[in-house]
Structures are given as C-alpha cells and as structure tokens.
Design a protein around this nucleic acid. Structure first.
Lengths: 394, 394
DNA sequence: CATCTTAGTTCAGAGGCGAAAACAAGCACC
DNA sequence: GGTGCTTGTTTTCGCCTCTGAACTAAGATG
C-alpha cells in the first residue's frame, strides 16, 4: 500500500544526481570510472553530471591515480567547503553549538551552561542563535555558506514547521522551538529528538555505518532508541517512534518518573541503577556508576538482565541487523559487560532474529548529538543538492 | 542513508503505470479525467497509458457518467478477471486454499484437515498443490490466468527464493516449503508468515485501510504483529520483525512455550488465559474463552492489563496511527472489552503517541490469512503490472 | 443548428538516459 | 620518435518519457 508518487523526467535527473553525490560522499575520492560501476549509471551520464557538479563547485578534483597501462583516473570528491552545517545539542545541563563542514569536521563550537531547572525556551533559543553567530565568526564562515541548522532536543518533537516540543524533563509541553528560532534566522532549520540525532550520527559515521535495518539505543539519564528501517530513521505517525525507555518490561513494576510503572528506564536509567544499588549520589554520576560496576553488587547483574530484556524485545520486534549501544551509561556498561549483555539478550529473544543481530558499542562520544543534528542538514543536502549556491570558498 | 537506485526513463513509465493502476484499483470506477487529478499525471499521459492498459485488457470500461453540460466521462476500472491469485493458509489444524480474482472476491476454496501433530512438510506441500488444482478447476480458471500463489504459514520465513521456514509449533526448523512447492508448479510463489498475511489483509481491505503507519496484532493461539511503516509491511533484516508475542512484559515471569519467560504470549495467548483462569479445556477454546469472559473472574481484568501493556509498548516504540486487533481471541476480547483495552493501553503509554493512535478491532474473519496471502500476489501485480499476458477472460 | 461545456487524443518539443564512436592520455616496444 | 595497446572521459546520436497546447469528440442548451 505504499503510495508512490508520479515522476517526471526531471525527477530522474534529481534522483540520479543524489545517487551520484552519495556515492561520491561515502566512497571518498573516486574516479568517474568507478562511479559508473558504483552507481550503475552510464559513463555518459556520469560525465555530464560530474561536469555540472564541478561547475557548481559542489565537487572538486582530488588528484589522479595511475591505471595500469591506460589513461590515469582523475579522482573527484565532494568539496568539504561547499557548505557548512550547524549542529546543536540541547541537553539538560548545557546547550552546545557546533559548526561542521560537509565532511563533518568540527570547525568551531561553543557551550552554554544551563543552571539547573532553568529551561526557559526563550533563553535556550537565544543561546542557540548566539551560538550560531559565535561559531560562524570563529570559523570565518559567512551565513550564506551555511546549509542549515540541525537541533537535537530531549523529548518528543512534533512533525511540522514549528518544531513543537514536548519534554517532560524540561517542563516543556508544546514549546515551538522551531518558531522561536525562525524569528532570529532565515537558515533552514531541522529540529529532532536528541536520541534520534545521536542515532543518526552513529548510523552515518559510527558503529552503525552501512546498516540498513538497525537500532541505536541511547542509555543515559533517559533511555531512548532510534529505529532505522531501510536506511532511514523510522519516525512513526507523529515522529515519536523509538520511545523505548518507557516500554514496560515488568507489568506493574517500579514507578518511573514518567508516571508509569515498570518502564525500562525505571530499571536501567542511571538514576534507577543508582537507586537500586542504594547509592545516594553526590553529583558525579559517572563516578557513582563506576563504583557500582566495581562493587560486584548483584545490581550489576540485574541491570544487565533488564537491559537484555529490553534489547531482546527490540530484537524480536524490529529484527535489526545491528544494535548499537550508545550514550555514556551504555558505553560504560558495555565496556566491561558487553558479552554479558549479549548473553542476556540471547536468553530473552528468539533464536532466528537474535542470530541475525550483532550487538556493538557506540563509537562516538557525547558529541554525537550535535554531530547527528548537523547530519540532518547533510542528509538534506545529499538528497536534493540542486540549488545552485554562491560560495566564496572553493 | 537510504540507498536510492539509479533510474532511467523506462523506470518512470513503469512507476507511473503502477501509480495509475493503484489509483484505478483503489478508487473503483474512475474516469480518465479524475485520474489526472488523482495521480498528478497530465491528461496526455493518462490517455496514452490507459489506452495501453485497455489494449492489454488489464483495464476495462465500466460505463459512463454524465458531466454537467459536456461530454460524458467514461469510467474505467481494473479488469477483475484479468488474472487470479491463489491464497493459502497453512494453520495448525488445516490447510486452506482459496482462489481470488483481482478484486479479491473468493471464487473457490478447499480445506484439508490436518491430523494433530501431523505436519509433514511433504504432505503440506502436496495439499497445497492439490488444492491449487482443485480451486482452479472448480472455478474454471486455467493456470495461465493465475498471477501467483501466496502462502501464509506459522513461524518465521527466511527471506530468499526457497521460502525456508522455522516454525516451532510445527516442529519445522529450516523447512524449504517454497522449494518443495516449486517442484510442483511454475507459478510465482510468495511465502510469508501468517500473521503478516493477515495483517496485509486488514491493511488493504479491513480496518487498517489507508493507514500508512500501523500495527495489526493477531491474538489467537499464538500472538503476533504486523508492523506497517510507510504503507508497507516492515520485515527487518531477516524478515522476522513483528514477533510481538515473545517480547517480555514481565522480566523473569511466566514460562512460555518458546522456552523463555515473561513473554506476552505467556499471558494473553489463549492457552495462557485459560491456564490462568484455571480452565481445563475440553477442546473448544472459543467456548472456554467465552466462559472466562462471562465469569467476571479477575483473570479478565488481568488479561486486559497485560494486553494493554503489550499494546502500549507498540504505541511507544512504533507510534502508529492505528492499531488493529485481529485474530479470533482478539476479536472476542475486543467485542466486550475494547474500551477497557484502550484504557489499559493509555495507562501504560506516553501521552503524545497514545493520542496519535486509534485502537480498533479487525473486520476480517479467520479467512483473512488466506486473503492476505493472495494479496501478496496482488501487491506484486499493482507494483509491476508490465508483463503482457494473454487471457481468455475479459 | 450554432454555441457552450467538458472529456479525451494527438502532436511537437524539451529533457533524460545509454550505446557507441571519438577523443585523451599514458605505456611498451621497436 | 612512431605505432599500437590500454584505459578513462567526452561527445554524438537515437530512443524514451513527460507535458502543454492545439485539436477532436460528444453531449447540453436554446
């Protein structure tokens, strides 16, 4: 029942151009000849299309490589300075703004600390807008060169132009962050859930690279997941798909801060782990968690079991080829306990889907949220790179 | 990271043809004029394309309708007799083979009872092949008119041409049913999990009609789900996605026939319900369940709660616009308890995704498995209806 | 019967792709 | 250095698809 759209001959060009650009982007420096093989396009088409892209400065030459006996291949690659993307991570404790070139190399960044419980939407919007100006001037990039701004936020982001957010932890219920930002900038905006942007980052540049069906889970203060179907983030009807943390693993179990009972997050969220271990934190959760892990307390094993149950449910329901465990809690747990986590998952999932899944740790650090947010911009660029742009760089 | 394919001008035609045919199929009798509006194609294209389709007998005229003042519109529709599809339901107690025309009207059917525990693959394959011959001759349809055979089976079906099946309840572990059938017929074969074919049927012709993001759950002896993403069944990497019945809702809970503990199926599968109610069945499960429901035993409320938890997990994780409850247990429960089920689901899911979801009962009876299996053939036909076929009908 | 209205068809033109020919640029060898 | 060989890239040409516009079809109306 998929609803295909009508197509016209122009769409072909656009689509093939995206295919070509993606191949170029992900294969690194590549010759035209290789591109015909990789894309399946004819040499003629590759030739004319690369000529266009070179003319628009989207693609640049990148040296030559000799070919045994014949004319050397000219290597091409996407011009990393054709444009830039801003990635923003709005977290509980800080707002981070990063500027990335098209290769996703960070060119500048700036942090704004948030006083606890100070999550005024206006303030956050001001931080973001100020941050954008700062990173641009730090890196010497002009606004015209920026392809867009991606923002990762906690909570659920409604689909639509206003970027309306529901984030219980912030006390935000229906905050139109996108609209607030729109007042201060005319650049394209992409607002998405932070777990999803992190997932996007791991999918494109981290441990999930190349996977077409995957789940990237984020274990931190909150617990979330990004479900990737057919290579793209699965969003569901109102963009909240992947709320794994509040799926129930114990009917009528421990109370959760969401108001429910028995949520996964109520067992393996960092606060839950510490609580179950009887630790009263003095502020440094990472240290606290390390202490629990070192203690050989039964809480560790229980945590692994609960996580295994949660992961197994994903294995059964989603049947991914890869599960990436990210977030700082996830990585800290996984470093020592990955085999146990795998075992616990296997014990709770069906044999066939479990056999098809590999469970790995995330590779990107906590900056992945901002990187992933910038990747939203990159994705758009790779999908529809047709607007001719004027750049000073090159 | 979706990987688009290169396209050539020919693909446009194929794609637009599919768009047109789908519009024609789902809008019923439609004029060319309406089709231009519905498909977005130009009148010229619609004209030439419908001429082709009429010439191939895929589409036929279906009367006229006057248009105020001008030339009357000629109505067109898909020729229901252009081809036929066979749908097969392989269940624990029987094998059912149905023949459907393109409008999915059943033209003939035949049942083969299976003795309990008699699930020899060869036997089942023979039943299916014999059944195909029977329904064809009963309906007076020749094999050349059949577009394909869809088969719904229990258990997990590996992707690939051999249709390899893992069905614990049948004692099948790696049975290549597709290959077995291939020996006896040269018609196109589509083998899929029965819960998925039922889901497909509800999605196309039942309560799920028109939904793009949906979940169709099947409650019966087993418990399963079909996850629909962007209008198509989501299969995961090895085609086993949707194994909802063995997701855990009580870590370390009741033992399940799958060997695990705390599976949803161990609470709301029919055997589990009866067991929890202390009923020792004398064979008629439907009656037993009716008895339990009438008894006002606390088991009923518990069952609703467990189901609510299971559904809530789907709401949170998948964020569907619609959940369809199917399967005979599902319908029997839902008939009296749907409001309670909704309440239990709401209590265990996040507010935003719950608000976006409507929970409804399935509309199609137990025949939906075979119908859905036939729909696999129909789907293929609507996607790529390009092979010119010779038919006697029309 | 002339005119109006709406439906459907035909035709010319633009834009796309691919096959193959042509061109480019090295290497090897005499 | 010239000649042929090999491989990479560009150009040419034919075929295909879509669309807009002109055109034909068919009924209603007065």
């Amino acid at each position: 029942m998929a609803r295909p759209q009508r197509r016209t001959v122009r769409d072909i060009r656009r689509g093939n151009r995206a295919v070509l650009l993606r191949a170029l982007y992900f294969s690194g420096p590549t010759s035209r000849n290789d591109l015909t093989a990789r894309t399946g396009l004819s040499a003629a088409t590759v030739s004319t299309m690369t000529a266009d892209l070179l003319g628009e400065n989207i693609v640049v030459e990148a040296g030559q490589v000799e070919s045994d006996g014949g004319r050397p291949r000219v290597l091409l690659r996407v011009n990393p300075e054709y444009g830039f993307a801003v990635g923003v991570d709005v977290a509980e404790t800080h707002v981070r703004v990063g500027l990335f070139d098209l290769e996703m190399t960070e060119r500048a960044k700036v942090d704004y600390m948030l006083r606890p419980a100070r999550h005024d939407p206006e303030l956050i919007a001001r931080h973001i807008l100020a941050g954008v100006e700062v990173v641009l001037s730090d890196a010497g990039v002009s606004p015209e060169q920026v392809l867009g701004i991606g923002v990762g936020v906690p909570g659920i982001v409604e689909p639509g132009a206003d970027g309306v957010i529901h984030a219980t932890t912030f006390g935000w219920d229906g905050v139109p962050l996108g609209a607030l930002l729109r007042r201060g900038t005319s650049l394209p905006l992409y607002v998405d859930n932070g777990a999803k942007t992190m997932g996007q980052a791991e999918l494109w540049f981290g441990s999930g690279r190349g996977a077409s069906e995957a789940v990237i889970v984020l274990l931190g203060v909150g617990v979330g997941a990004t479900i990737v179907a057919d290579g793209t983030t699965f969003r569901g009807v109102s963009s909240s798909a992947g709320e794994w943390g509040h799926t129930k693993i114990v009917a009528n179990g421990r109370p959760c801060r969401c108001g429910g009972r028995g949520c996964l997050e109520a067992y393996i969220g960092i606060e839950a782990i510490l609580d179950r271990a009887g630790v009263t934190s003095r502020g440094d959760w990472e240290e606290d968690l390390a202490g629990v892990l070192a203690s050989k307390s039964p809480v560790v094993e229980e945590t692994v079991t609960y996580l295994g149950v949660g992961l197994a449910n994903l294995v059964n329901l989603v049947n991914p080829e890869k599960i990436v465990i990210g977030g700082w809690v996830g990585v800290q747990l996984g470093e020592s306990l990955l085999p146990d986590i795998r075992r616990a998952t296997a014990a709770n999932s069906l044999a066939e889907p479990y056999a098809a899944t590999s469970i790995v740790l995330g590779r990107l650090g906590p900056d992945a949220v901002a990187l992933g947010a910038a990747t939203l911009v990159l994705e758009e660029f790779l999908n529809a790179p047709q607007v001719a742009r004027i750049t000073a760089a090159g």
